[in-house]
Nucleic acid binder design. Structure first.
Lengths: 341, 341
DNA sequence: CTGTTAGCGCGTTCAC
DNA sequence: GTGAACGCGCTAACAG
């Protein structure tokens, strides 16, 4: 790869100058007393030879590689969290940096390996990302340089980027209140593990807090809260069936994520009920399926691209020690309507 | 990042030997006449100092970086093609390599930039990946070194990895035949653009060919073929509604991908029809939604992980010049049954 | 047998 | 404007 590349020495020779002179000209160093003509010659030589510096050689001296490590548990290959990478990639490109990506799969051995591989390559900093928003323990080894946590926090005081789930919870509840729902709002997706263990999820508790807060401010309490062992469609389906078996049917349902909502739609369809005429549904994440559902599902978007972007910006431009909360925009879609009757 | 790392010189000094000796021992060179005791001392010193070689310095000499460029149009951030990256990541790790990932977003300027960034960093090879299986033109610049095309072919004779869509088409048709469907099989997702332009899609034509071949072998012709402007749920929905308005209702439907099938499910649900009792459905891709649908959707899986893995293997271990076709496994699920009546 | 010296590879930087 | 050293590890040639 890249054999026959012209070196700085080639450029200098062609320009009839020293490597030093060529280096200074090409790096636009100020305050050097090199003639305008020397500048011309160097630029011309570099142009003609198609010279590009060997970054490996450069970094040996400068200790900068313009390379960022992106270490994640499994985010890199997760269906819709690729947005994190896309945002990071964009921001990195804008700053002339490049991303070295690895995945630990939650395996300590892999993590160890990945981190050493990164440090051996002298990366300028590390973005440590989690698939589920949660608290985690950062490996000692990377604390020697800049680190930003993405979709995660830790007990160390590291800069981190998180979605604003609390505010998202409030938006969701507020959207229902605005449509006139009050005393027949149900919730699908309570989960003790997610709510209780910050290392499993920070989102669950924050969303819940926002929901309860907004409803509480309006003097409303939930009609029902369904517990689910996980947040997959099958659990939303079961929960919705349960709700429909109760004496009072809800006028609206909040699902803790879109996959649960998908399951809820399935149960509603089977029961011959229509969204939103019979029941409104609103949710979190803005998974691609949200827009594909019929009717399209109102939800609050996880701003993955923004988050990835912010992480790179924090790492490279420096910034806040306190958590960076990225807003989760409300996507108003067709699953919302005033209560029936 | 990585300040204070012990250098080879540190190790040599501590072992009371020369850098050369230390280097040879640590690299396990055979045929060197260094005493067993010298070996011990070097290993001990390296251990105590936590020595790790600086790969930038090493690559300056060896011209190997143990780094692979993964350049894609937009695959890196696509919802379920992240599997390509996961597979590549795994195979790379097994070979002690690491992935430098970039995205061109189909933009020539970005592509130019990305490739230069990679070559400047002396990557050992390039995996050039496309989101949609298609033919593409490989930039000159990367032809100086090893290249493998992933989910793509080109006019240059480069090794490439493709899903075996042709065989997948035959599996799909065969699965229906095995269930007893014959003269009432419909197809959703014909598309002139995808079928006609190899730079848009190779999959469409291959799948179609496989389907027609398997049906033809059984003396069966399709009841109907619906054209769709794209392969999204809304198009599948519209096509299915169209099919239901015809005089003869199909006993089974083949959808060109799972998103179309999702739309078809929606139309069937609205029409009060049941899968698979009224109509069987089968499809391509094994998008995550396929398993979430009720009933779960039979489909042929795009073997993304396998493909990513093969690409790295071809790049590093060398291999076939002819295309590597990766089988698309049939996922038998609940959307298949014998025709009603 | 047991090792070492002297450079190379490439770009940056200090002293002159 | 320049020579030389440096950063770090690898390798060919050479010495006790």
């Amino acid at each position: 790869m890249g054999r026959n590349r012209a070196t700085l020495a080639d450029v200098a020779r062609r320009a009839g100058l020293s490597k030093t002179a060529a280096s200074m000209v090409l790096n636009g160093r100020e305050g050097t007393r090199l003639s305008a003509e020397a500048h011309q010659r160097v630029f011309a030589a570099a142009e003609e030879l198609g010279y590009r510096p060997n970054l490996a050689a450069r970094s040996l001296r400068t200790r900068k590689t313009a390379t960022i490590a992106f270490v994640s548990d499994i985010v890199a290959t997760t269906r819709f969290a690729g947005g994190l990478i896309r945002g990071a990639l964009d921001a990195a490109r804008e700053r002339d940096h490049v991303l070295l990506i690895t995945e630990t799969q939650g395996d300590a051995t892999f993590e160890q390996y990945a981190i050493e591989a990164m440090l051996d390559r002298q990366v300028d900093g590390v973005i440590y990302a989690a698939m589920a928003t949660r608290r985690l323990t950062v490996p000692q080894a990377i604390l020697g340089g800049p680190v930003v946590l993405l979709n995660a926090t830790s007990s160390d005081t590291l800069p981190c980027v998180l979605p604003d789930d609390d505010r998202a919870g409030r938006s969701v509840a507020t959207a229902l209140l605005e449509h006139g729902h009050r005393d027949a709002i149900a919730l699908i997706g309570r989960n003790r593990l997610k709510e209780g263990d910050p290392e499993v999820s920070l989102a669950a508790r924050a969303r819940l807090r926002g929901i309860h807060q907004a409803l509480g401010d309006a003097g409303v309490t939930l009609l029902a809260e369904c517990f689910c062992t996980d947040w997959l469609p099958e659990h939303g389906y079961a929960a919705m069936r349960g709700l429909l078996n109760r004496q009072q049917r809800p006028s609206a349902v909040i699902c803790m994520n879109d996959r649960l909502a998908f399951g809820a739609y399935q149960a509603l369809g089977e029961a011959g009920l229509t969204v939103p005429d019979d029941i409104s549904v609103i949710s979190f994440d803005d998974d691609p399926i949200a827009a594909w559902l019929r009717p399209s599902l109102a939800t609050t978007a996880l701003p993955h691209e923004q988050m990835g972007r912010r992480a790179v910006e924090l790492l490279l431009d420096g910034g806040a020690a306190e958590p960076t909360l990225v807003p989760m925009p409300l996507r108003r879609r067709k699953s919302l309507a005033p209560p029936a009757g």
